[in-house]
Design a protein around this nucleic acid. Structure first.
Length: 90
DNA sequence: GCTGAGCGC
Protein backbone atom coordinates (compact mmCIF):
# COMPACT_ATOMS: atom_id res chain seq x y z
CA UNK A 1 0.00 0.00 0.00
CA UNK A 2 1.55 3.26 -1.09
CA UNK A 3 0.67 6.25 1.01
CA UNK A 4 0.99 9.89 0.07
CA UNK A 5 1.94 12.29 2.85
CA UNK A 6 1.75 16.03 2.27
CA UNK A 7 2.34 19.28 4.17
CA UNK A 8 5.26 17.83 6.01
CA UNK A 9 7.72 19.90 7.90
CA UNK A 10 10.69 20.91 5.78
CA UNK A 11 13.03 19.40 8.29
CA UNK A 12 11.15 16.12 8.59
CA UNK A 13 13.17 13.13 7.50
CA UNK A 14 12.36 9.70 6.05
CA UNK A 15 12.93 7.96 9.35
CA UNK A 16 10.39 10.31 10.92
CA UNK A 17 7.70 9.12 8.52
CA UNK A 18 8.86 5.57 8.89
CA UNK A 19 8.63 5.81 12.66
CA UNK A 20 5.25 7.52 12.51
CA UNK A 21 3.69 4.82 10.35
CA UNK A 22 5.58 1.99 12.03
CA UNK A 23 3.47 2.62 15.10
CA UNK A 24 0.43 1.26 13.29
CA UNK A 25 2.03 -1.40 11.14
CA UNK A 26 5.09 -2.58 9.30
CA UNK A 27 6.55 0.06 7.04
CA UNK A 28 8.06 -1.46 3.94
CA UNK A 29 9.56 1.78 2.70
CA UNK A 30 9.44 5.48 3.46
CA UNK A 31 10.63 8.38 1.38
CA UNK A 32 10.63 12.16 1.49
CA UNK A 33 10.38 13.83 -1.89
CA UNK A 34 13.18 16.32 -2.34
CA UNK A 35 13.97 18.67 -5.16
CA UNK A 36 16.07 17.05 -7.84
CA UNK A 37 18.14 20.17 -8.47
CA UNK A 38 18.43 21.85 -5.09
CA UNK A 39 17.99 18.76 -2.95
CA UNK A 40 15.64 20.54 -0.55
CA UNK A 41 12.52 18.92 0.80
CA UNK A 42 9.41 19.56 -1.26
CA UNK A 43 7.33 19.18 1.88
CA UNK A 44 5.74 15.87 1.00
CA UNK A 45 6.68 12.22 0.81
CA UNK A 46 5.57 8.63 0.38
CA UNK A 47 5.23 5.68 2.72
CA UNK A 48 4.83 2.07 1.70
CA UNK A 49 3.35 -0.43 4.13
CA UNK A 50 3.26 -4.22 4.02
CA UNK A 51 -0.32 -4.71 5.13
CA UNK A 52 -3.12 -2.79 3.41
CA UNK A 53 -5.40 -2.88 6.42
CA UNK A 54 -2.68 -1.42 8.62
CA UNK A 55 -1.97 1.11 5.94
CA UNK A 56 -5.61 2.22 5.85
CA UNK A 57 -5.89 2.63 9.58
CA UNK A 58 -2.49 4.30 9.66
CA UNK A 59 -3.78 6.81 7.10
CA UNK A 60 -6.93 7.42 9.13
CA UNK A 61 -4.86 7.71 12.28
CA UNK A 62 -2.08 9.94 11.00
CA UNK A 63 -4.17 12.00 8.61
CA UNK A 64 -4.50 15.65 9.66
CA UNK A 65 -2.36 15.00 12.68
CA UNK A 66 0.69 16.79 13.97
CA UNK A 67 4.06 15.54 12.85
CA UNK A 68 7.29 17.28 13.80
CA UNK A 69 5.15 20.27 14.81
CA UNK A 70 3.19 20.52 11.57
CA UNK A 71 -0.22 19.17 10.61
CA UNK A 72 0.23 16.62 7.85
CA UNK A 73 -2.15 15.23 5.25
CA UNK A 74 -2.12 11.48 4.67
CA UNK A 75 -3.92 9.71 1.84
CA UNK A 76 -3.50 6.83 -0.66
CA UNK A 77 -0.88 7.62 -3.29
CA UNK A 78 -1.46 7.58 -7.03
CA UNK A 79 0.41 5.08 -9.22
CA UNK A 80 3.73 6.38 -10.42
CA UNK A 81 3.58 7.53 -14.01
CA UNK A 82 5.53 5.33 -16.45
CA UNK A 83 8.57 7.04 -17.84
CA UNK A 84 12.06 6.49 -19.17
CA UNK A 85 13.45 6.24 -15.68
CA UNK A 86 10.85 4.13 -13.93
CA UNK A 87 10.23 0.45 -14.32
CA UNK A 88 7.26 -0.46 -16.43
CA UNK A 89 4.32 -1.44 -14.28
CA UNK A 90 2.48 -4.55 -15.34
C1' DG B 1 18.11 31.44 6.55
C1' DC B 2 12.93 31.71 3.20
C1' DT B 3 7.50 28.70 1.46
C1' DG B 4 2.94 25.48 2.15
C1' DA B 5 -0.48 22.92 -2.52
C1' DG B 6 0.02 18.68 -3.88
C1' DC B 7 1.83 12.99 -6.03
C1' DG B 8 7.87 9.98 -6.24
C1' DC B 9 13.25 9.32 -11.51
Amino acid sequence: MNIFVARLNFKTRREDLEAAFAQFGQVTSAKIVKDRDTGRSKGFGFVEMANDEEANKAIAALNETELDGRTIVVKPANPKAPGEGGATQS
